[in-house]
């Protein structure tokens, strides 16, 4: 028996919004420690890794490890049927070929359940090597989304250059060129407005804008985003989900000329 409850459907809706543009389907691996999903996009350029800890749920029960392959488009249709303040419970029997989403209104007067067929996706997890990143940047998630959106107008790719002084995002194309420089902040009132740079070595890396823009669909989940970079390895874009876990996107760099 598997049962996971969140007192508020908003978080689950936001999580799905953050992955459904990149992934058509995904396997949710459930164990007593929580729910994990790891999947590459269709082009195998990026990888999504979602971790939801069992202690972050309002109720969590997982008697046996369970892998549930889900069509994320179908899951999105079902979650659209939940009000934001509904309680959502995900339920499945051991070895079942369906999963049930139950939505309960706050006053308990409306209870709906939606059963969805599971898929056999046969997805195998890739091992992600432990990496000491040369640069780790924490910045407001909204600011990162804004920069990715703005620079995508100028080029298909963005160059991220990180030094001790700051981080610079650049794009150039037929229209011209664009540069956005962010300096590390000191003495900000609110932690979520801070820009913090931890640098061992400066890095310059080039990434495809369309993937960065897809990652920013996670912006509603978190005030801050963390970018981890080293030369010649994938960028990690991490959004923490308060009290529940995190979503990490890994993006392979572009091949330099």
């Amino acid at each position: 028996m598997f049962e996971a409850r969140l007192n508020n459907a908003t978080t689950l809706k936001k999580i799905l919004d953050a992955i459904k543009d990149l992934l058509n389907e995904g396997t949710f691996d459930c164990s007593d420690s929580g729910i994990q999903l790891q999947a590459m996009d269709n082009s195998h350029v990026s990888l999504v890794s979602l971790t939801l800890r069992s202690d972050g749920f309002d109720k969590f029960r997982c008697d046996r490890n369970l892998s549930m392959g889900m069509n994320l488009g179908s899951m999105a249709k079902i979650l659209k049927c939940a009000n934001n303040d509904d309680t959502v419970t995900i339920k499945a029997q051991d070895n079942a070929d369906t999963v049930t989403f139950m939505f309960e209104s706050q006053n308990q007067e409306k209870v709906s359940d939606y059963e969805m067929k599971l898929m056999n996706l046969d997805q195998e997890h890739l091992g992600i090597p432990e990496t000491d990143y040369s640069c780790v940047v924490r910045m407001p998630a909204m600011e990162f989304a804004r920069i990715c959106r703005d620079l995508a107008q100028f080029s298909e790719s963005v160059v991220i250059c990180c030094t001790k002084e700051g981080v610079k995002f650049s794009a150039s194309g037929d229209v011209g060129s664009a540069n956005v420089k962010l300096a590390q902040t000191f003495n900000v009132d609110k932690e979520e407005e801070a820009i913090v740079i931890e640098m061992q070595e400066p890095v310059v890396l080039t990434f495809a804008c369309r993937y960065l823009n897809a990652f920013t669909k996670a912006t509603p989940l978190s005030n801050q985003v963390q970018l981890s970079m080293s030369a010649d390895v994938p960028l990690v874009v991490e959004y923490r989900i308060a009290e529940l876990g995190h979503i990490r996107y890994y993006l392979a760099p572009k091949i330099e000329d």
Binding site: E124, L126, Y250, A252
Partner: peptide, 14 residues
């Protein structure tokens, strides 16, 4: 995608 590395080139297959 010829100017683009793929993500599974960097990670360890199962």
């Amino acid at each position: 995608l010829k100017d683009q590395f793929q993500i599974d080139q960097f990670f360890i297959p199962p």
